[in-house]
Design a protein around this nucleic acid. Structure first.
Lengths: 217, 217
DNA sequence: CAAATTCCTGACCAAGCGGTCAAGGAACAT
DNA sequence: ATGTTCCTTGACCGCTTGGTCAGGAATTTG
């Protein structure tokens, strides 16, 4: 397993740092749109403003680029759920979780689409993470939600599927952005409809889970 | 614009009918997993049990296969929303809509993933449909929902975003099937967790929109 | 059953793909 | 400024890709 020539270097240089970042930015853009097989190294190199052999000086193989960009975004992806606090107020915690996920969809839609593509393709790389760390994290937080339900502080719903619902609704705004823009039409530009989305999600989830109404009309 | 040789034929033969169907089935499988660029004609041909030149006898170009398979599934995709009936009971109508969408995710996950890939890639083909027929349909049904809200029969939420929420939560079970299986683990096989999903969705949506609780615990 | 038509295939092609390499240019330490 | 290390590139390679084509095998038609 030969490292890229750039990594045979004594220490990390400034140019290395810069170029690897440019490559990963470009790779995120390209992989998140075309998927692993649909993306080409030439495309990534062009978007990063360099020649293909130059790119391959930093990442020896296409797969290495993919792994690197998945790794770079992977933590950010798991993080929001980790902050769900068993000691907090259920409604507030769930609302805050929805907010964090929605912000991720707005600020980093490419990362969301990258994971969407990876999972639709059967999660060839992320598979072990899904059944490992992610499963453990979800099971842990599902137990928290279940305890809230048992204490009568939340309507009785299946905690795992509640988490799926929150993932689905929030990530939808990143993954299906094209469709949302087309359906909303000119009426709504991006920053505006995210606020409406946030209100709608919190309204439905919170009153659906606690009986209380979130935002009055 | 030369048609495929099979279409230069006088009338549609039995063999044509059969083979085109086999090709479209295979194409749905392959395109829904790999996207347009990631899919190869060889792959589709192999899955359809024929040679590549034989496949190209029926569809002259890769793009023609993609268009045909999108067209074939396109109606099915729009249909569930069309049945939302302004004259019906709001809760019942929304529950029925969720059911139909969830059934589609269970019975035809590949079609769902095909559209997901197409939209993530910026809807190069479906774009006009999204801003055209789909937008008109959604606007029409959003008006129905708004009238229900104005009559006080539904909590005040943005109708467009409510529809997005239903799309997101139901399609999630098709598009992210891999992730759901990984997270649920061995505990849940497919037919079983769809029931739980249905109950959870209806509970959250219905009590979130009407104050009433869907299924008691 | 033969003639017309439809169906199928191996061989092939140009273009695009991921990846290599030798060699020249920049950047840097001393 | 000079030797050393790092960076960049054009030319190239073998393989896969979408697509063609001539001709033979099946099937349908009279």
């Amino acid at each position: 397993m030969n490292p890229a020539r750039a990594n045979r270097t004594r220490k990390r240089t400034r140019i290395q740092e810069e170029n690897e970042e440019r490559i990963l930015d470009a790779a995120l853009e390209v992989f998140s749109t075309w998927g692993y097989r649909g993306a080409t190294v030439d495309q990534i190199a062009a978007l990063a403003g360099m020649t293909k052999p130059n790119l391959l000086y930093y990442f020896r193989r296409k797969e290495d680029i993919y792994l690197a960009v998945l790794n770079r975004t992977h933590e950010m992806w798991l993080e929001p759920l980790e902050h769900l606090d068993a000691a907090g107020d259920p409604s507030r915690e769930i609302a805050a979780y929805i907010d964090r996920k929605l912000e991720m969809s707005r600020d980093n839609p490419k990362a969301s689409r990258l994971f969407a593509m990876e999972i639709i393709q059967g999660a060839p790389i992320l598979g072990p993470v899904l059944g490992g760390r992610l499963k453990r994290l979800v099971d842990e937080k599902a137990a928290v939600i279940r305890s809230w339900i048992d204490e009568g502080r939340l309507a009785p719903v299946d905690p795992h599927h509640l988490i799926f619902m929150i993932w689905a609704t929030t990530q939808h705004y990143a993954d299906f952005d094209t469709q949302i823009r087309a359906v909303l039409g000119a009426e709504a530009t991006q920053p505006a409809h995210f606020d409406t989305a946030k209100q709608t999600l919190e309204q439905v989830f919170l009153s659906g889970l606690t009986g209380r109404t979130g935002n009055a009309r």
